[in-house]
Write a protein that binds this DNA or RNA. Structure first.
Lengths: 172, 172
DNA sequence: CGCAACATGTAAACGGTTACATGATTCA
DNA sequence: TGAATCATGTAACCGTTTACATGTTGCG
């Protein structure tokens, strides 16, 4: 259900085509809300149906430009400020940790070592995003930075946890 | 796809019926991999079909007890040690942060204040789990503790981040 | 000319949620 | 006897992924 709000959020900045939105999902939003081509075009049609966006005339190559309506802005605002945030409930790595008792202590330590390597790689990716992003000075500069900071704090926490966990795996 | 492994993991400890498993999903696994009744019974049938479990004779009230097979244990082990862990990609709160530029600074600060309250409530829940759990001394005591520790570190990190973010929201 | 990029759409499959439906057993 | 618990199953729907399918425009 958040996909539609992600799209409204992008359209709140400026009108765009499905193709434009798709690029933004792959660039800026890839780490917080990925979306496929199939999804974007589908939701775009529904959004226009429900009056939250309007479709402009067809441009070259059948390009359709969508713009957010006042109703769409109101709906985006309602989602941001009133709809409860839902925390993601499923956690693949913790599920596996629960069953680590079925493998040997050495293998369990290997599991946590791999976790450290994986999260370190992700940390590097985020540092690269930090460096390569043109931060400008609009609101997105501030809020994009806040989101990135979450990622950096998360990866640090996760790495430290895995390092600690490795040390407390019982010897047989 | 992880549901089947969660079920194999539970069955690796001891044989159980769908009803038994359901209770364990609601108790111990609720915070890492929730599952519905509908899902459990469906997957149980598939698991038996593919030879990863066996069905015992029907007990009272049509109860069917499932046991993991050697093939099932091998598959569980393969998943634990060889299948790459996938990090969850979607993050509701960060998606919203991206669009906070569309509301006023006061409202943005309110957003982070609510985030602090929500995460504090979750932190309290985890502390309650910590207190109320009978930790015993099997492997689940160790690995359950490690998983819980992740939750405590996560909530602490998230709370500190939201507190910090609140202070750096620009004044208009 | 040919290729990359632009541009849109549909269908099948999958995992998960919600709701419906039914019946047996235990115990107060 | 009536309520709570035990116990299983199915159907409809929703959001997401993967794959298929097609056509246009700009540029070297």
């Amino acid at each position: 259900m958040s996909l539609r709000y992600a799209m409204l959020g992008l359209l709140a900045d400026e009108p765009a085509s499905g193709y434009d939105l798709l690029r933004r999902f792959n660039d800026s939003l890839a780490n917080v809300w990925p979306a496929t081509q199939s999804q974007v075009y589908g939701e775009l049609a529904k959004l226009a149906d429900s009056g939250l966006t309007t479709v402009g005339e067809e441009g070259p190559r059948g390009r359709k430009e969508y713009a957010i309506t006042d109703e769409g802005r109101a709906e985006l605002r309602r989602w941001l400020l009133e709809v409860p945030v839902q925390r993601s409930r499923r956690n693949d790595i913790l599920l596996r940790v629960f069953f680590l008792g079925t493998v040997s202590p050495d293998e369990a330590r290997g599991f946590f070592e791999r976790a450290v390597r994986n999260v370190t790689a992700y940390e590097d990716e985020l540092r690269a995003v930090e460096k390569e992003t043109e931060w400008g000075d609009g609101p997105l500069a501030v809020y994009g930075r806040i989101a990135l900071e979450w990622g950096l704090r998360f990866t640090a926490m996760h790495r430290e946890w895995a390092e600690w966990a490795r040390t407390i795996v019982p010897e047989e």
